[in-house]
Amino acid sequence: MTRVLAPVAGRVVGLAGVPDPVLAEAMVGPGTAVDPIRAPGRAAAPVTGTLLKLHPHAYVVLDAEGHAVLVHLGVDTVRLGGTGFEPLVPEGAHIEAGRPVVGWNPAAVEAAGRSPVCVVVALDAHPDALSRVAESGEVEQGAELFTWT
């Protein structure tokens, strides 16, 4: 079983709270989303594993069970071209859950006209494989968002 942890602190809004139909309908994968605290911070690894893909605004960590989790920092943030995002770990590195991966400022993303909502989804997962999925409430960085079996 994989415990998937919150990359950022904030308010859990669930995928339904993501202002993008493809993400909201779980087409990328099942999971949840966190509206982050508007302060500079460092988004963390949701699981322990290999940093399989690293973009400034998004990353994928693959754990030892073969579960890959995508963290997408904000919606449409790919259009910011990396501005305001600082990768802190090289792609391919081993990383512990809760360790920082990308430095960013949700307030700056919002000021640039994008939603800073942080999407956390299980890739290639059947929705039934997820349980205890957080859909609301405040969450601390590193707290459990859902489990994946």
Partner: peptide
Amino acid sequence: VGLHARPAAVFV
């Protein structure tokens, strides 16, 4: 933006 999150999901 390439075949990233949204276009990739639609394709898959």
